[in-house]
Nucleic acid binder design. Structure first.
Lengths: 135, 135
DNA sequence: TTAGATGCAAATATTTTGCAGCAAT
DNA sequence: ATTGCTGCAAAATATTTGCATCTAA
C-alpha cells in the first residue's frame, strides 16, 4: 500500500505524495511527465502545484520508487519502479513506448565495461523503431 | 576540407560555420556543448552569438555532419560524425566519455526490434560506469 | 509543537525565434 | 542584387528555488 511505501522512504505521508503515487500506480507501467501528472490532478479538481510535483518526483527517484528517463523531446518522464529491470523501445511514428529485456545485452554491457577497467553502475538503452511495413 | 563539407551539405560557407566545424575537428572525437564552443570562440576573440552556434549545430546535425547526444545533465553535446558508429560509456566520477562498439549488441538490438514487429532506425546506448577499485 | 511540506512567484538553465542589418554567391 | 546568414534581444520550455504558510507526526 502507498502509505507504507512512503514511510519506508522516510517521507511524510501527505496528500500530494499519495495522489502522485496513486496516479503512477494506476498508470501501470506507463510513463508520465511532470506535466502529465499535473494535468491529471487538475482534471480531478486537485490543486497541487507543478513545483511540488517536480519535488515529489525527485524524492521518489532518490527513494528508488520511480525511474526517470530522458527520451528525446524535452520533458523527462517517470515510471513506477516495479523491480524488474527493462529497457525501452520507442515507436518514432506513434510515440508508443514498449518495454523489453535482454539478458544477453545486459551481460555484454558488463563485459564491455569490465574490459575497459570499469564497473557498470547504470545504463540507458533506447531503441527508436518504426513499424514493419505490412505486405 | 571544411569548405567542401559545407557546400556538400548545401550550406553557405560562412565564417561562423567554418570556425565551429574546425573546433569540432580539432577536438578529434571529443564532445562539445553549444556553450563549450561559444567559450572557445570567445577565447579566440571571435564574436559569434550563442544563437548562431545552436542554429549551426542543428543544421550540421540535419546534414549528418555531427551527432547530438543527450547524456545526463542538461546540456546536449555534439561530436563530429566520423562515420564509424559507436556507443558511449560515461565515467560517473570524472565525466570522461569513452567510445566503444559491439557488433554483438548491435545485432541483438535489430533482433529484438524485429521480434516485436519493428525496424530499428536508431538507438541510444550509454553505460554509466565507475573505475574499478585498485587492489 | 515542530520539522518538514506545500503553493506561489520568481529565478535558472537551455534552446528557439523574430527581425533588422550583413555577407556570400 | 538576392538569398540566405548573423547578432541581438526577447520568447519559449523545462525545471529549480526562496519564502511565508500550512500540516503531518
Amino acid at each position: 500500500m502507498e502509505t507504507t511505501d512512503l514511510r519506508r522512504a522516510g517521507l511524510k505521508v501527505t496528500h500530494p505524495r499519495m495522489r502522485i503515487l496513486s496516479i503512477l500506480e494506476a498508470g501501470d507501467g506507463k510513463h508520465f511527465s511532470a506535466e502529465d501528472i499535473y494535468r491529471k490532478l487538475l482534471e480531478s479538481e486537485e490543486d497541487i502545484g507543478l513545483a511540488t510535483i517536480y519535488r515529489v518526483l525527485t524524492q521518489f527517484e532518490a527513494a528508488g520508487l520511480v525511474l526517470k528517463h530522458n527520451f528525446e523531446g524535452g520533458q523527462a518522464v517517470y515510471e513506477l519502479d516495479r523491480g524488474k529491470h527493462h529497457d525501452h523501445m520507442v515507436d518514432i511514428e506513434t510515440g508508443k513506448v514498449i518495454e523489453f529485456t535482454s539478458e544477453e545485452i545486459e551481460r555484454l554491457q558488463h563485459e564491455i565495461a569490465d574490459r575497459h577497467g570499469y564497473v557498470l553502475e547504470e545504463h540507458s538503452l533506447v531503441l527508436y523503431v518504426r513499424a514493419k511495413k505490412k505486405r
